[in-house]
Amino acid sequence: MAGHATSLKTYFTIWIALLIFTGLTVFAARIDLGVYNAAVALTIASVKATLVALFFMHIRGTSERLTKLVVVSALFFLFLLLGLSMSDYLTRAWH
């Protein structure tokens, strides 16, 4: 994972992109997209998180598949928690 001049360029590019996305998410929140406001906000957040994970945390470029497996399993179990809980909350006949 030794750094090269290109990696420095990547870091600054990602940094600029993250700042732009931050501006974008505020901008998107201030216009009415109906039910899609939340979806857009979460999508932008996920893109930003992915950029940080891939380039700053070096998931891209690590030779190891194991790291990716850890990330995927953490997200998998997080979605299990959220998804199966929602299977209750979204289908209740009362409330």
Binding site: F77, L80, L84, S87, D88, R92, A93
Partner: peptide
């Protein structure tokens, strides 16, 4: 083991659909 937890809650008031799934 992570997919089955709500079988402890069948009479607690979770939705019937959810109870069937669990």
């Amino acid at each position: 083991g992570f997919l089955v937890w709500a079988h402890h809650m069948f009479v607690a008031g979770i939705s019937l659909y959810s109870a069937l799934v669990f």
